[in-house]
Structures are given as structure tokens and as C-alpha cells.
Nucleic acid binder design. Structure first.
Length: 369
RNA sequence: GUGGCUGUAGUCAAGCGGUUAAGACAAUGGAUUGUGAUUCCAUCAUGCGCGGGUUCAAAUCCCGUCAGCCACC
């Protein structure tokens, strides 16, 4: 079955919409939050946890998987889904962001990017073509083009050149794609310059991708800038194609972005913060390391139906996190992933019910981010 | 009883005459947005067992005292 996106309900008062993404590995209801599973697992959780939470799709990282296990192992195992025993959809980030963010030496030229492996310091190289070739070895349901990401605070000149190269690379990635059963998304760049964002959205739209990502945000701009450029960029993208805001974000970021018409998200926050003892909930954020929780008999959220909140107190989670006990990472990661999933589910039902505007305003004004 | 060694933050511990007493752990806050997160940042001894003394200057030297440890009676 070929990749497709079907918009369902559109909210009357905001730009929010819900829909269904169809992939080789099943359907995905949008708006969707994608848990980040860089190395083949959402850190601290296993697939049974993810399935019981209702996780629809996980994200993998081309950059990391290229270095380990590498193409040969993936080919011999018959692809990434088989290697990791996950039969729901997978989206792979191309590595553009890692190349931008990791503090190792790299040289970006028009041909591609040369970088050093963090595993053995060996020089490695990604061209747009070889990057797509590898994402096809992974067998990703949704591949991302290799892009050039720069800080959102970059000068207009730097942002423009990164954007233009991103467009040229996007075309090369598209041409390199052999397996058209899987999707390849383009990535809009342009930092915080409206004219660049407009130009980038148009250039990529002309290449006719099955979906478009908003890249280059959550990399240095303010919350208000992020909201503005999310909304601005989303409005420039085709209404009948999925929009994916990369790397974002907090619960408020998600709700505000759904209001702006974004359909897909990924972020390390729920799992990364979980390991530091930060739990998210409809009742607000709970910093479990705080001394006050050492004796709290309350669950993270008494209205939460996840097994962690059903059974365990803040005091117990506080104890586990303070002791660096891996079970603590799992329990809080489970709760946070559950919360993110329920938040997205709630957005979908409120959109379908025509009440999303009211729900989202209330959420943003009453729930601590 | 005699001799020796040691007493620095909640813990371990640098310092061995000279400006505001390293560092680590713990503790208490904070950060974290396409995961190289068991990470990062901040705060944390007007004080060096106690009492005297020497000196321009003492955690550092001297005397006394208390406590702990070791050895020998």
C-alpha cells in the first residue's frame, strides 16, 4: 500500500486538523507524537510498553544507525523493523540535525558532509544520495531528506545559504529514492526570516513531496518566535500534505502547534526529562527530585490512568530517581510517553468534536508547561 | 600507664607560615526541544576538635587539653 495522507476534520476556529497517515506498516492517526528511539528502543522502555501506551510510530536516527549497526548488519537482518522486532511504522531522521548539533569536526560541502564517527573517529561521509540509500536499507516508512540545519539566530546570509543548499539536496534525495512505497519528506529551513520560510516552503512544494517538515526550530529562538514561525511556515505548506514539526516540544509547544496546523511531532523531552525526574501531566509538571516529594503519597497525576499513576506514589518515584535506579527511568518515561500520547489523542478527539479551540485555550492557560 | 599517629563541611579529602580554605560525593535549587543526557549549571566551612601562645601573618609552628586509632607495658 502506498503512502498517503487523508485529512479528516478541520477545526473551524484554528488551523488544527486531524487525519490519517497510511504507511507500509499501518495507519497513524494525526496529530501524532512520535517517540524518539535513536538506537532501536525508546530509551528505558521496550516495545511492549510502547504498545500498551498506544505509541503509533517511533523515530530512528540514520546518523546513529549508519555508525552502528551499519548497512551490512541491517541488510543481513532484513531491515530495521526485523532487527528491532517492531512492526509498526518507523520514521528516520536523516542526520542533518546531528551533523549540525554534535560537537565533532565535520566539513559540509556541496557534495555532502564529511564527519568523524564518534565510535572510532573514522572519517565518514554522507551525500544526499548515500543518505537516502541507507534510509532505504533501514526500511524506514517515512524518510527525511538530508538538510542543512543552522541556529535560528543565524544571520540572514547564513540562513539563506543553508536553505538553498537544503533545497538542492532535497532534489538530489528525491532523485535518489528507489523504493516509492515508503515516503520521503522535504524539510523547510529559513531560520526566523519570513521571506526565507516562504521561499523554502514554495521551493519544496514544487518538488512535490508526500509530506513536509518544518526544520530549524527549537534551535535557539524564543518561544514566541517558535510559535510564530511554526504557524507562518505551516500556512505556506500544502493543506493536503502532512506537516511535521521537527524536534518539538513541550506540551504547550505541541498544543500551540496543533492549533497552527501541524500534524506530526517528535521530541526527546518526555523520555529525556523523565530520566531527570521530570514528569508531565494534565495536572502540571512534577519535578520529582524535589525534596518535598520524598514523603508524598500522591501519584504523579491522580486522574492519570497509566499503571505508574495507578500504583506508585511520588515518594517512590522520587526515591528511584534519586538512586539512579533504572526502574525509575522506566516508570517516569512510561508515564510521560503515556501523557504525550493521551494529549495527542485528546487533541484529535477535540478537533473531531469541534471543541478544540476551547480545549486548547484552556489547556494553555491552566496547565503548567 | 607509656610511646606514636590522626583530628579540616553530612561523608571522603587537599592544604604543611602569607591574598577571599582545592576537589569529589551527598544535599538544595535550576536547566534540558529532529537523544553522543546515569548530562549540564548554580548554591553549599567568616571556618580547620577545644583552650592558650609565638609571629606583621597560624588549618599550618609551640604548650596544654579532649577524642579516636595503633603499639608496648
Amino acid at each position: 500500500m502506498a503512502f498517503s495522507f487523508q485529512v479528516g476534520f478541520k477545526d473551524k476556529n484554528t488551523d488544527a486538523r486531524c487525519g490519517i497517515l497510511t504507511t507500509q506498516h499501518g495507519e497513524i492517526k494525526t496529530p501524532v507524537f512520535m517517540s524518539v528511539g535513536t538506537f532501536g528502543a525508546v530509551r528505558a522502555l521496550d516495545h511492549i510498553d510502547l504498545e500498551s501506551i498506544g505509541v503509533q510510530i517511533i523515530l530512528g536516527n540514520t546518523y546513529h544507525l549508519y555508525l552502528r549497526p551499519g548497512a551490512e548488519t541491517l541488510k543481513r537482518r532484513g531491515g530495521y523493523h526485523k532487527l528491532i522486532h517492531w512492526d509498526r511504522p518507523i520514521l528516520t531522521d536523516s542526520g542533518g540535525f546531528q551533523i549540525f548539533s554534535l560537537p565533532h569536526q565535520r566539513v559540509i560541502t556541496e557534495d555532502g558532509v564529511e564527519f568523524r564517527s564518534y565510535l572510532d573517529q573514522a572519517l565518514r561521509f554522507f551525500s544526499p544520495e548515500s543518505n537516502i540509500e541507507f534510509q532505504e536499507v533501514i526500511g524506514s516508512d517515512i524518510m527525511m531528506v538530508l538538510d542543512v540545519c543552522v541556529p535560528s539566530t543565524s544571520s540572514r546570509d547564513i540562513a539563506a545559504r543553508a536553505m538553498e543548499r537544503t533545497h538542492r539536496w532535497a532534489l538530489r534525495c528525491k532523485k535518489a529514492q528507489k523504493n516509492h512505497a515508503n515516503a520521503l519528506f522535504g524539510i523547510v529551513q529559513g531560520a526566523i526570516y519570513e521571506d526565507l520560510r516562504t521561499e523554502s516552503a514554495q521551493a519544496l512544494t514544487e518538488l512535490d513531496f508526500p509530506g513536509y517538515a518544518i526544520g530549524g526550530l527549537a534551535v535557539g529562538e524564543t518561544d514566541d518566535e517558535r510559535e510564530h514561525f511554526t504557524h507562518f511556515t505551516a500556512s505556506k505548506l500544502p493543506a493536503n500534505k502532512p506537516r511535521y514539526l521537527m524536534g518539538v516540544g513541550t506540551p504547550h509547544d505541541l498544543v500551540r502547534s496543533v492549533r497552527a496546523g501541524v500534524d506530526m511531532f517528535d521530541c526527546i523531552i518526555p523520555t529525556n526529562h523523565a530520566r531527570q525526574g521530570v514528569a508531565y501531566a494534565f495536572s502540571g509538571k512534577v519535578k520529582l527530585r524535589r525534596a518535598a516529594y520524598a514523603v508524598s503519597d500522591e501519584p504523579v497525576d491522580s486522574s492519570c490512568a497509566c499503571f505508574v499513576c495507578q500504583r506508585y506514589s511520588r515518594a517512590y518515584l522520587h526515591q528511584l530517581i534519586k538512586c539512579d535506579e533504572p526502574t525509575g527511568w522506566r516508570l517516569v518515561s512510561f508515564h510521560n510517553t503515556w501523557f504525550y500520547e493521551r494529549l495527542m489523542e485528546r487533541c484529535r478527539s477535540e478537533i473531531a468534536g469541534g471543541t478544540f479551540d476551547r480545549f486548547s485555550r484552556e489547556f494553555l492557560s491552566t496547565v503548567e508547561d
